[in-house]
Simulated assay, not measured.
Amino acid sequence: MKFVNLFKIAIAAIKRNKMRSFLTMLGIVIGVGAVITMLAIGQGSNESIKSSIASMGTNLINVMPASRNKGGVQQGRTSSQTLKEKDVAYLKKNSTLLEAVSPGMKGSGQVVYGSNNWPTEISGGNEEYAQIKKYEISTGRFYNSQEIKTAAKVCVLGQTVVENVFGVGVDPIGESIRFDNIPFKVIGTFKEKGNNTFGQDQDDMILAPYSTIMKRITRETHLRDIVISAKDENQIDEASSEIETLLRESHKLKDAEDNDFEIRTQDELISNFGSISEMMLVLLGSISAISLVVGGIGIMNIMYVSVTERTREIGLRLAIGGKGKDILMQFLLEAILLSVLGGLLV
């Protein structure tokens, strides 16, 4: 039989059982739709994570104290006091691949203004901190090097703190707030950044000179971390190696001694989250593929019923000279048409 005739017969068979054919195609529609939706969600999530991390700066490098092991017990980074102000000065003086270097301090508590209060955290850095972290000034100004030297009680607020402490649309410049019973003068506000990759509100923060936080809030002599931006995002690995070399020199570590600090880059974060996203993508694709398999089984069952119903027709075709392969091609073509039509409906 000619292919055109087989095609016409397949179309006629589908038209004869419109409802059954529609329900069969519906299984394919649901299966293909599930695959497309799940893959789109997985891919979109992956791109969103990469974009969120990249928004913090693709040339960002974080140096943190290494976890301490005392008596066989892991003490954690917070108990480690390996990073000092002299390390920041040493990196600035001797590095060739670093654009900006800032100490990092952090504390948490209640910010109070009049009868309003809000639980938040206060971060500290030098005059290059906002540049490294990609924070932009909305109103007012950023603190300067003189205010850092004198441990001035000045701060810049994120929009979440402004809205919850002062109210929406209120300009807080020049006002005084209290954090941990320490008065701070508001000299600026940041533009809104939104949530980061981990779902943390990047606008729920106060930024002050790191020296102020060290002397007046945490009362610590060591740094929580060091934040760095490389000159070229294509030289992140080289910059990381340079940082490691310089910090080992600054800490006077011997060749046999392990680093007492850890270096993390945005590339590592993107790689780690990318691996997780790819696993989720495969998992979602596998789950949605089950719907497609179910749709295929539906077509198989319908074709089995169709063959059973049309045994007389098949016998007649064989009696007048039809071949087995022609009969097989006829039903196979019907199954293909049902699948294609179902896919086109998505």
Rank of each mutant, 00 (worst) to 15 (best):
G71E: 09
T82D: 00
S123M: 14
L60Q: 11
K84R: 07
N116I: 08
G72D: 08
K70Y: 11
S95L: 06
Y90Q: 06
N116C: 09
A66V: 01
N59Y: 13
R77L: 04
S102P: 09
L60C: 04
L91E: 08
L91W: 07
V63T: 06
T96E: 13
Y90L: 03
M105G: 05
M64S: 12
K50Q: 13
S67W: 07
V88K: 04
A100M: 10
T82I: 00
T96P: 00
T82E: 00
I49F: 15
M64E: 11
S79N: 12
K93T: 14
N69Y: 10
R68A: 11
S115Q: 13
Q81T: 02
S95I: 03
V88G: 03
S51Y: 12
S67V: 04
S102D: 06
G76W: 03
V112S: 01
T96D: 07
A66D: 01
M105K: 08
N116T: 09
Y113M: 12
K84A: 01
R68C: 01
S79F: 03
K86C: 02
V112Q: 05
T78Q: 15
W118A: 09
Y90E: 01
V112T: 07
R68N: 03
Q81R: 04
S102Y: 10
V88Y: 05
D87S: 04
P119L: 06
N94H: 13
E99H: 11
N62A: 10
T58V: 12
L91Q: 06
E99W: 08
L97A: 10
G114D: 04
K93M: 14
V63P: 11
L91A: 08
Y90S: 03
K84C: 00
M56R: 10
E121A: 13
Y90C: 02
S51A: 15
I53M: 06
L98G: 02
K84N: 01
V88A: 04
Q81Y: 00
M56D: 02
L60N: 05
Y113P: 10
I49S: 14
S115R: 11
K84I: 00
S115Y: 09
S95K: 01
S51V: 14
M56G: 05
A66T: 03
N62K: 11
K84W: 00
K106V: 15
V111Y: 11
P65V: 00
I122W: 04
N69P: 02
R68Q: 15
G104V: 00
T78F: 10
R77E: 02
R68T: 03
L83Y: 05
R77A: 08
A100T: 07
N116A: 15
N69A: 07
N59K: 15
V63S: 05
M56P: 01
N94Q: 10
Q74N: 15
S55D: 15
S79D: 07
L91N: 07
L91G: 05
Q81L: 01
N94T: 03
D87P: 01
G107V: 09
